[in-house]
Design a protein around this nucleic acid. Structure first.
Lengths: 356, 356
DNA sequence: TATTAGCAGTCAGGCAAGGTGAGTGCTAAG
DNA sequence: CTTAGCACTCACCTTGCCTGACTGCTAATA
């Protein structure tokens, strides 16, 4: 029902509204853009757009504002992701290049992304997924306390404390036994995909003499927990202060938004649902964020851009930005895409290096 | 210059202002508190308090508001930290008791504290300080990549990646050598205070045959870095959303506040400067937060409460809350103190357990 | 049929005037 | 030292008015 010019009108409405933060009227449109038609014609087009619920008027005699649906059409059909400036590319390379470990990479990534977009930047730790066990460490911290450390080939290190209940006789954690245990654990599990590790761990204790078995079982249980640890889904974020700066973009307080962000579960779920086509950026707009648990309605006036990056081991994770629905989609999508790509390259470069 | 009753007046002004968010006048005071004198008398007292710059009037015909200096006097002389309710104590115990490792403890601590106070809660990782090395791990991740893991008796695990430049001949990282290296590192350094470890590491490589020395030196250097890693000063925080809820307590936007908080350096410095007397709570009010670097003026309308806790190994770290100067000092100081105490008990209980 | 000009109608937001009430400082008396 | 009384100030609210930016509609035009 909407003519080509109508879509063009929608585009400039979105662009002008994002830039000016003010409802845009027919007159302003003909003034700022050369449509070659009069304001009245634009008004007719706008009437159609309104009928399609792509724009709306805050009050009777004001200009129009894009609806969530309008943004959706804009993002799907009208936006072309323009490449970053070379200065920005430069910034990405130099800033991310200095990272020393995964924590650092993600911390830098989010800080960088929040600077590029002036929004809240989010990055998910790579899920264990297809990662493999590189090394297992068991360290005695005291007569009844043990620490297990799980190191994966993705560079992830996960430690856990274990209190061993005193047995009869008291468990003997001499170094020699721990050495043996460590050796056998690594022999049995080294190189195993995490997905399979839990299975193997279950039967691991039975290969030990009965008096050792309960202790070993405890350790194995602990490691099994680590394997499926929910930690794998931790989020890093940066630039929450940007929300305060764009505060006027929210009808009420930014409190519910901040709250929803702190409740990382919501974002993780949301990230999980957003499907990313190859090297694309996926967008979830306003009400589309609904339904990811209580508190998610705090995100009803925000949009989330997400892209995926692959860490070494082929495990996939998400990164993106969150901001008010009225954001510069074009620029932000470009930034997310560029950073995601660079991140993939950075992490798989390590990978290659490692495999050679 | 200020009479006893004058101080009492200051107290109720602070209390009423904190509770009502509105300037409090002489009439309201005599109505709500039984001073046994008339409003006019209170007015005289208030005139004196104003002369001492303990209170101020936002505009000519309005009630008074405490100044930073007024809050200072209130905190120093007029507040008694009332004990928590038993329900609150209960909450602390059950919530913190479930923690599995140090990360978890601090994450839970901040979430709890932010709930108890409705402010932003902060906790510093225990500084290595007097901590000792418990265990060192060296893991080959590939032909030219090594990961070093440093585990301290405070339960801290710090890993780092190391790219080893190909030598002549290419470095041989067979398991046997790594085993030897690991053993010697632990023999040499296990139990060493971190403060001394860097020293010893410097000469460590020289005890190896020349063809191994460069490689070992690289590893030792990497470990030395870890020992003095700035990471030791990381902060955990929770409840930033609370800032948005108390937004009206700030004259401008909360943007500079959020920004200052993200810039953890400022808070870490501030924490460092605040001196904590035994089991006390230290308070830094408004302008007192100034001078901790650019961005610190974002904190000019906030107060920071801090207490210390001792982790195992006797290392001291801070935890506290941050909120608008107009906060419930009495309650918040109680909460900070109680949580700090409990945390110390929790961590040193482990310690004891471990030493027995 | 698509476009345009013109016109009447709507309504948010800004501005000024006036009233209200909370709160003060001062003074003189108890 | 305390109190009552009084004049004064000033933020804040309400009301009314005006302006300007829009719109939707209609009738003329290409």
């Amino acid at each position: 029902m909407v003519s080509d010019r109508g879509l063009e009108v929608l585009r400039v409405i979105v662009q002008d509204y994002v830039a000016s933060r003010e409802p845009v009227g027919s007159k302003t449109i003909v003034e700022r853009h050369s449509f070659g038609v009069s304001a009245a014609t634009i008004r007719n087009d706008m009437a159609q757009l309104e009928e399609e619920e792509l724009i709306a008027a805050p009050h009777t005699s004001s200009g129009r504002v894009p609806t969530d649906k309008g943004y959706r059409v804009f993002v799907d059909q009208l936006t072309e992701v323009r490449p970053l400036t070379s200065a920005q590319r430069q910034a990405i390379e130099t800033f991310l290049g200095q990272a020393v470990d995964l924590d650092d990479v993600l911390s830098r990534t989010t800080r960088l992304l929040s600077q590029l977009t002036n929004q809240v930047a989010l990055a998910q730790y790579p899920s264990f997924g297809s990662a493999r066990i590189r090394h297992i460490e068991v360290v005695a911290l005291g007569p009844s306390r043990v620490m297990t450390v799980l190191i994966t080939d993705t560079g992830r290190v996960d430690q856990r404390l274990l209190e061993v209940q005193g047995g009869h006789p008291p468990i003997d954690m001499d170094d020699q036994f721990l050495n043996e245990l460590r050796t056998r654990l690594n022999a049995e599990l080294g190189g195993t995909a995490l997905a399979d590790a839990a299975e193997r761990l279950r039967s691991f204790a039975s290969t030990f003499p009965p008096e050792r078995a309960p202790f070993v079982a405890a350790i194995a249980g602990c490691l099994a927990e680590q394997v499926v640890a929910n930690r794998q889904d931790r989020l890093v974020m940066a630039g929450t202060a940007n929300l305060a700066r764009t505060e006027s973009d929210f009808s009420g307080s930014i409190y519910p938004v901040l709250e929803a962000i702190e409740e990382q579960v919501i974002l993780i779920k949301l990230f999980g649902e957003m499907e990313i086509d190859a090297d694309g950026v996926s967008v979830s707009i306003g009400h589309e964020n609904q339904g990811f648990g209580p508190g998610a309605q705090g995100l009803s006036e925000t949009s989330v851009l997400a892209s995926g990056y692959t860490a070494s081991g082929g495990s996939m994770a998400r990164l993106g930005v969150l901001g008010p629905t009225r954001m510069d989609y074009s620029n932000n999508m470009a930034a997310v895409r560029a950073v995601a790509r660079y991140l993939t390259r950075l992490l798989s470069a390590n990978e290659k290096h490692e495999e050679q």
